[in-house]
């Protein structure tokens, strides 16, 4: 970043004004201009995020003025025609689906990345990387359709009956509705979708631990697992947490794949077999319809703002931690 800072114009003028060899000046000026253009281009994303946030804020302003923030965030009823705009069911729906997705995804992802980083042959690694990239490149709508055709029936015909039979007394596993369109279906689809991201980030984190440390532990006769548990894992724990948060923020914003399998019922869920209605689905399903209802448009954009703020916080935190960890490699 540092070298893209343009020289302040006043200094620049002095340099050029005094230049003993004017033939260089046009080239220097060109260089300056190029630098400035690149600098602005690098800043563009920042401006975009700011612009989107401000635009959302402006458009959501009417609803924010009409109701106290607490009523919006924690309100439990969404009935725009009766002027009830509670985001509660949607925020909770998002949280449930995300938490289920992350919980399902993290354990196998951790094991996979430990295997890849610590045990696998380099041949296995070089084969796995492109496969993971491929998985990450599959469009969400394809995951959604896969969820609809495979996961929803699986939940309905296998998991729900199983839970009914064996886990009926535990309320988060109770089966309150007959379909497979549920938080669990959404969670399973999300778990698969965020897996490549989590695996590759955690793998990178493991790679930052210098081999000298592993060798020092192996040299006194520790097994490979003892070395991983005692030496490597303590070094990478913050990075693993950051990777999980990054995966969660991806899961938070995932719209189409979840929308297809989660049922979209605006209720407060109490079980993973309940349907839910996450924030992104709310916005995608409704924006553009029924805009004649007063404040409806503003409420949807308020929901978008909530989503954006949560994702930004998650992303910024995890990116900061990950950057620090990955830089350590060069220290």
């Amino acid at each position: 970043m540092n070298d893209t800072h343009p020289v302040p114009p006043e200094i620049n003028e002095k340099i050029e004004g005094r230049s003993p060899r004017p033939s260089i000046a046009p080239r220097a000026r060109q260089d300056q201009r190029a630098r400035r253009v690149f600098f602005i281009i690098t800043l563009l994303p920042v401006f975009l995020i700011l612009a989107v946030t401000i635009a959302l804020l402006v458009r959501a302003w009417p609803i924010l003025q009409a109701y106290p923030l607490g009523d919006l965030l924690f309100g439990q009823v969404w009935k725009p025609s009766d002027k009830l705009f509670g985001f509660g069911p949607f925020i909770l729906g998002t949280l449930w689906v995300t938490v289920v997705g992350v919980l399902l995804s993290v354990p196998p992802c951790l094991l996979a990345s430990i295997y890849l980083a610590e045990y696998a042959h380099s041949a296995t690694r070089s084969f796995t990387k492109p496969v993971l990239d491929l998985l990450a490149a599959i469009p969400p709508v394809v995951y959604g359709v896969w969820g609809l055709l495979a996961i929803v029936p699986f939940v309905e015909k296998v998991l729900a009956p199983f839970a009914k039979r064996w886990l009926g007394s535990v309320s988060i596993f109770s089966v309150n509705q007959p379909t497979g369109f549920s938080i669990l279906s959404g969670g399973i689809v999300l778990a698969v979708m965020i897996a490549p991201l989590i695996i590759s980030v955690v793998y990178e984190i493991f790679a930052t631990v210098p081999n000298d440390l592993r060798h020092a532990s192996l040299a006194v006769g520790a097994t490979q697992w003892q070395t991983i548990r005692n030496i490597v894992l303590p070094q990478v724990t913050p990075g693993i947490i950051a990777a999980i948060v990054l995966g969660a923020s991806r899961a938070f914003g995932e719209t189409i794949a979840v929308l297809i399998v989660v049922g979209n019922v605006p209720q407060i869920p109490t079980s993973i077999f309940d349907s839910a209605y996450p924030l992104p689905a709310l916005i995608a399903n409704n924006y553009g319809d029924m805009m004649s209802i007063p404040l409806y448009d503003s409420a949807l954009l308020g929901a978008a703002l909530v989503l954006l703020v949560i994702i930004l916080i998650f992303n910024i935190l995890s990116t900061l931690v990950l950057q620090r960890m990955l830089r350590r490699k060069w220290a």
Binding site: P210, D212, L213, A216, L218, A219, V220, A222, N230, I231
Partner: peptide, 28 residues
């Protein structure tokens, strides 16, 4: 692991484990 317990290695660059001085010696 038995082999490496019997045959110790002093590396070219010292590689202290990321723990206290005491724990380094107690580790093995």
């Amino acid at each position: 692991t038995e082999v490496r317990k019997i045959v110790g290695l002093l590396a070219q660059r010292p590689a202290p484990l990321p723990m206290s001085i005491y724990d380094n010696v107690a580790y093995g």
